[in-house]
């Protein structure tokens, strides 16, 4: 399972970078979305995956009966998803405004501030 996930994460990072290197600003934002999801999936994978062992303490006990899944990575991912959602919502509005103001969706024509 871990091996498969590793390949998926790698593929997502590669796809994200590829999309970000395209000239269209829409593809740029798609790249950013893939990138944040790839990072989340990476946290999920490296923190260790365990099936069928929810982190619950039985009633009356102080500690869980056996080894359980680590709930913290999921909390981290949840936080990261919320942040990524907000930031990406902003980026979508930004590219829309940029398209309106600059009049093109081609990154190669947005060089006014570079020189």
């Amino acid at each position: 399972m871990e091996t498969l996930m590793a390949y998926i994460v790698g593929a997502m990072f590669a796809a994200a970078v590829y999309m970000m290197l395209r000239r269209s600003i829409v593809k740029l934002v798609i790249g950013l979305m893939l990138l944040s999801n790839a990072a989340n999936l990476l946290i999920f994978t490296v923190a260790g995956m365990r099936q069928g062992a929810p982190p619950l303490v039985p009633e009356g006990a102080e500690v869980p009966a056996s080894a359980v899944a680590d709930p913290l990575p999921q909390a981290l991912i949840l936080t990261a998803i919320v942040i990524a959602f907000g930031v990406l919502a902003f980026s979508v509005v930004l590219i829309h405004r940029a398209y309106e103001v600059v009049g093109t969706d081609d990154l190669d024509r947005m060089k006014d501030t570079d020189t």
């Binding site: 970000m20 600003i25 740029l28 950013l32 990138l35 944040s36 790839a38 990072a39 989340n40 990476l42 946290i43 490296v46 923190a47 913290l72 990575p73 981290l76 990261a80 930031v87 902003f90 980026s91 930004l94 590219i95 405004r97 940029a98 103001v101 600059v102 990154l107 947005m110 060089k111 006014d112 501030t113």
Partner: peptide
């Protein structure tokens, strides 16, 4: 707008690397 696209993209890219590094460290 032009400046912001560059600023936003590169800073989000850096955040993604930061987050991945935190994940691996954890």
């Amino acid at each position: 707008m032009e400046g912001a696209i560059k600023y936003v993209t590169l800073n989000l890219f850096s955040s993604a690397i930061f987050l991945s590094a935190v994940g691996i460290l954890y």
